[in-house]
Structures are given as structure tokens and as C-alpha cells.
Deep mutational scan, measured.
Amino acid sequence: MGFKLLSKLLVYLTASIMAIASPLAFSVDSSGEYPTVSEIPVGEVRLYQIADGVWSHIATQSFDGAVYPSNGLIVRDGDELLLIDTAWGAKNTAALLAEIEKQIGLPVTRAVSTHFHDDRVGGVDVLRAAGVATYASPSTRRLAEVEGNEIPTHSLEGLSSSGDAVRFGPVELFYPGAAHSTDNLIVYVPSASVLYGGCAIYELSRTSAGNVADADLAEWPTSIERIQQHYPEAQFVIPGHGLPGGLDLLKHTTNVVKAHTNRSVVE
């Protein structure tokens, strides 16, 4: 069995187990497998329904001669939608809004960016022009300005110390501490036991640490421990890039980060 097929099978099995364990909360999309990078042309966006009122959005972007996937989250909030992270750029984010209108038909009224990198804030200006209120932590807003990236308009308070959590509509926002970046936030959907790890969490097929220019490698494993301790009931975990899975993604990420750190020390 090929690795790609095995990865998709694991996603399907995880979703099936969740649907059985929580039949009222989960209505997993039966329309197909989780979209992969090879299936999404740059400039297009796919939506994948995880649970009743919960979707991931998947886009792709060219970077350094390669094409990478990027995940975000959409959560229903009454007759409105909360968006977590842009679709990595203005063109993708405009396509995301169009796809949401086509498939869901509810307005996106608020959006949260989970850290300051372009795959999370690139497209904020498109959201703002569409009347979406954009939010991020003060740290993310400051770092985005320093980096020359787009800056969300509103500040999220109460997320300055490791372990801080605040309720934001249908989700809980959690600051686990520094990891992929010093400002990275985690998003949890309690009604569906869905954990969105953003770039602080890796997919299972990833074996290298990737972009760690703004990471705190020493603190990252401790931050992941905080996530595990705060959300032990999480059933569906979405990484910032690639295929979702279960809580095993947290341990896998820790292993990859520690291996990278150990290699760096040896070198």
C-alpha cells in the first residue's frame, strides 16, 4: 500500500471513529477524501466538511520552486461564519470567499490569524475590503508590521502568557507558548472536538522541520505538551499544512522538532 493511500485511509478511519463516538456532533463529509496538494491548482481553494458547521479550507501556493498546501478553518456561528487564517495570499483568499459563498452561503463576518507569517495573514486586506472584521493577538499584529505583512485590524486580548485561553464565538483560542513562531495560536472547536494546530503542528508525513527561522526550538516541545494537557479530548487535529489526523500529530511534531534540534547540535 502506497504512503499517500495509507495517509488518506488514516484520515478516513479517524473521521469514521469520530462519527461513531459522537453521532450528534459529527456529520463528516462523505463526498470524498481530504484534498491534497496535487489536486488543488494554485489560485483555487477546496472546502472539506469535518463536522456539522465545521470545515477546513485548503489552498496551495508556490514557494521556492515548489507547491505547498495550506489549511485553515471555518466555523459556523449562528447565521454567520468565523474564518481562521487566510488562504495564503490575496488571490487565494478572494477564491476562498467565493467558494464559501458557493458552498455554504453564509457571510464571513470575523477572521482570526493564528500567527504573523504570510500563509496566515496574506489576504487580510481582501477580507477587510469584503467587510470582514480581522483579528490577531497584539504580538501577531506587531510582528506582521515588522515583517511588512498585512496586519489584522483588531487585537485579541488575554493571550499574552503561555497557557492563556479565551473564548471567541464558537471557538476557544489558546496560546501554548512559542513553537513554530513566538505568537502562534491554537484554535479548538469544543462542539466538535476539532483542534486546529496551525503551523505549530505537523502532518504525519512530514519528517523535516522546514521553516524554523522564527521558531523557538527549545520551547516548542513544552508548548505541545500544554496543548495535549489542555485538549486531551480532541479527536480531529488539523495541521497548518497537509493531512489531518488525531492527537498523534502532536507527538510526531515533537519528535521531528527534537530530531532537528539534535542534528543542529551535532553539526
Rank of each mutant, 00 (worst) to 15 (best):
I104S: 00
N184H: 03
L156M: 08
S223C: 03
L97S: 02
D64Q: 12
D52W: 08
G32T: 08
D79M: 10
E225W: 12
F116A: 08
G163W: 04
G240Y: 06
L106P: 06
F174Y: 10
G245C: 05
A136Q: 03
V256Q: 05
Y175F: 10
L6P: 08
E44C: 06
E99I: 12
V75G: 02
F174E: 01
P190L: 07
A218V: 13
R120V: 02
T60M: 14
Y202W: 06
T93F: 00
Y202R: 05
L97W: 01
A51K: 07
H252K: 05
A200V: 07
D216G: 05
N71S: 06
G169S: 06
S191N: 11
E39Y: 12
V121C: 00
A215K: 03
D64M: 15
P244I: 09
V212P: 01
L82P: 04
F3M: 14
Y135A: 03
A178T: 07
G148S: 09
E150H: 03
G246R: 10
E44Y: 07
E145M: 14
W220S: 01
D214R: 03
D214W: 04
Y188P: 01
I58H: 12
S191D: 12
I104D: 00
I104R: 00
Q235D: 13
T140R: 04
P221S: 10
T114C: 00
G131V: 06
A129V: 10
L243Q: 14
G123N: 06
S191W: 14
A218S: 13
T261W: 10
G148P: 04
T86N: 00
I224D: 02
E150T: 02
E203C: 07
T14I: 08
T114K: 02
K102Y: 10
S137G: 05
Q49H: 12
Y231P: 01
P41S: 12
I104E: 00
P41C: 05
H115L: 02
A87N: 03
W220Y: 08
L96T: 00
V237P: 03
E203P: 01
Y48S: 14
F26S: 13
G242Y: 03
V121F: 03
A192H: 09
L81D: 00
D52S: 11
Y188H: 04
D125G: 10
Y202A: 13
R167K: 12
C199E: 01
A90D: 13
G43F: 07
A133Y: 11
E101Y: 11
S38L: 10
R110T: 10
L143E: 06
L159I: 10
D164L: 08
Q235A: 10
K251F: 10
V171P: 00
I151P: 06
A51H: 08
S223D: 01
L47N: 04
Y68E: 03
G89H: 00
G245R: 04
R76V: 11
I17T: 12
A21W: 10
K4W: 06
I151A: 07
T253S: 07
T140M: 03
F63A: 05
S155L: 12
L195H: 05
L243T: 13
P138Y: 08
A130T: 11
V194F: 01
Q103G: 10
R110K: 11
D125T: 09
V257T: 04
S22A: 12
A179H: 02
N255R: 13
L249N: 07
L83N: 00
T14A: 07
S205T: 10
T222L: 12
A179L: 00
Y34Q: 10
R46C: 06
G65H: 10
S193T: 10
I58D: 03
A213P: 09
L83E: 00
L5D: 15
T153E: 14
R128K: 12
H252L: 04
R128M: 13
P41K: 13
T254L: 15
A259C: 05
T86V: 01
G65S: 10
G242M: 05
Y135C: 05
H115R: 02
I58R: 07
A136L: 04
L81E: 00
V67Y: 15
T222A: 12
P35E: 08
T134C: 04
S162A: 14
G148T: 05
A234Y: 03
E145P: 06
D79F: 09
T153D: 11
H230A: 15
P35V: 09
R128F: 10
R263F: 12
Y231S: 02
Q235C: 06
L204Q: 11
G65T: 08
T261C: 07
T261A: 11
L6G: 11
Y188S: 02
I151R: 06
L24F: 14
T222P: 08
T140I: 05
A98R: 14
V189D: 02
T140W: 02
L96Y: 00
I74P: 02
S139D: 12
I201H: 06
Y175W: 04
R120T: 02
P23I: 08
E147K: 15
R263H: 10
R141W: 04
A51W: 08
L127G: 02
G2W: 09
Q49C: 07
S223G: 03
N71E: 01
L83G: 01
T14H: 14
E233P: 04
L73C: 03
S181P: 03
S181T: 15
L83P: 00
S193Q: 13
P69C: 05
D77P: 03
P107V: 13
G158S: 08
P23L: 12
T253C: 05
N211Q: 08
T261H: 14
G53F: 08
H230E: 11
G2Y: 15
S30G: 15
S38N: 07
Y231C: 06
G158H: 15
A133N: 09
S30L: 11
R128A: 13
I227W: 02
L185E: 01
I100Q: 00
A213I: 14
S162P: 15
L83H: 00
N262I: 10
T261S: 12
M18A: 14
V212R: 04
A25L: 13
S264C: 05
A15S: 14
L6W: 09
S223K: 01
H57E: 02
G169L: 05
L10R: 10
G123E: 04
T86K: 02
N211T: 07
L173N: 03
S62A: 10
L83R: 00
L247M: 12
L247K: 14
T109H: 12
S56C: 15
T182W: 12
G210K: 05
V108R: 03
Y34P: 10
L5A: 15
V42G: 14
R76I: 09
E80R: 08
V67D: 15
G43A: 06
R128G: 11
I201C: 00
I227N: 07
L47S: 03
Y231N: 08
V75Q: 03
S191M: 11
A200I: 08
E99R: 13
P69M: 15
V266Y: 15
D183G: 02
Q103T: 13
L143F: 11
V189F: 04
N92L: 01
W88T: 00
Y175K: 02
E39V: 12
G78T: 08
D79R: 10
I224M: 05
V28K: 08
D79L: 09
A209R: 10
G177I: 05
E147R: 14
P23A: 11
L96C: 01
Y34H: 09
D64P: 06
E44R: 13
L96M: 08
D64H: 15
S27G: 12
K102T: 11
V166S: 07
A94D: 10
V45Y: 00
A178L: 06
Y68D: 04
P221L: 11
A130G: 10
V45C: 03
I17P: 06
P170W: 02
R46N: 07
S139W: 11
T207P: 10
S264K: 15
F3H: 06
S38C: 07
G72S: 04
S264D: 13
A178Q: 09
G177V: 02
V67M: 15
I84M: 07
P170Y: 01
A19D: 15
L185Y: 02
H115S: 00
A66M: 15
I186R: 01
V237D: 04
S31C: 07
V171M: 03
T60H: 12
G65P: 05
T140V: 04
W55A: 02
R142I: 13
G240L: 06
A87M: 00
E172I: 05
S27P: 12
P232W: 07
G123V: 03
F168Y: 06
V124M: 10
S56P: 10
L9N: 15
G148M: 08
A111R: 02
L47D: 04
S113P: 06
S113T: 05
L204H: 13
E99L: 14
W55E: 02
L185I: 12
K91M: 14
G72M: 02
S70K: 03
N92V: 00
V265P: 13
D85C: 00
S31T: 11
I50N: 05
F168L: 09
A144V: 09
P41N: 11
D125P: 04
